[in-house]
Nucleic acid binder design. Sequence first.
DNA 1: AAAGCGGGGTA
DNA 2: TACCCAGCTTT
Length: 340
Amino acid sequence: MHITKILTSWYSDNKRELPWRNTKNPYFIWLSEIILQQTQVKQGLPYYKAFIKQYPTVFHLAKASEEAVLKLWQGLGYYSRARNLHATAKFIAHELNGEFPKDYNGLIKLKGVGDYTASAIASICYNEATAVVDGNVFRVLSRFYGIQTPINSTPGKKEFKERAQQIIDKKNPAEFNQAIMEFGAVQCKPNSPDCSICPLQLKCFAFHTGKIKDLPQKIKAAKPIKRHLNYIVYMSDSHTTVLEKRVGKGIWQNLYQFPLIESDKELQPKEFKKQLNVNHKSIVLFNENPIVHKLSHQHLYTKFWIVKVTSLSENAIPINKINDFATPILIKNFIDDFNF
DNA sequence: AAAGCGGGGTA
DNA sequence: TACCCAGCTTT
């Protein structure tokens, strides 16, 4: 039997019940695909449910503020997805009369929609035979065919897209695309796939050559840089504090954080006090040892300094409003732990 | 072509 | 530790 038929057959027997599998409404499919970019189903599922509840249509999402969208996205990471999601919702509601583009070429023009997402929406919603290539597809194809080309190289992306396009079920691209991804997620897993029960075992290159652990190939990422963050947690007599919006380039764009002093190395109390040019009543270091927050490209060594002051300026916020703001999870965890 | 962008999970 | 995840955008 051919790989195409094996995968679709496996899918009909093994697919998970997921909320976006019961619809072809492009709003729901688009939303699920954006949430699931670089994100496992288990992590994205509660966010999907929260978003369709809060924003049942693209018009609801378009009407929301970016701040509200970021707040609902808080904790999911890659926040440009949320900003692009909101911008695209406004574009579709206001410029396209609420109607999504109906093919790959139209979809890929949307902010935050690349080759994978355009293919996913086009195939699932409109039955266009354009192959999805996500991390699962890379893994399944590289193992099955023994493709050594690094999946994160330009030639690799081209080669795998062509391979996937060759075996897509043109009669049912919606099912096939979801089948090969689900197969990668559930059966042909990154670690210790159970090849003994795999329906592709007979023709699988990696299985027969003992190269399961060597495929797919990938160009190694650079080592993350280290940064030292010192957050100033003001507390005034009238129970206010200060949050600032991160603007410009870099991580956490448009999210809120406490005023920040970044340093080349870890700051000790004396050094911190010298840099803090503010009249204060007391300074207490919340965590003696830096909290290490690891991102893909940066390791953040973080200290929270509690600075009591008599009063703060007009734009300070009441502490009981602090949870209204979208913050990085690093900040949210501190707020929860500190318990003001 | 390479870098930048999150946070959670596994081994 | 190192690697992975229903990737996209910018440099």
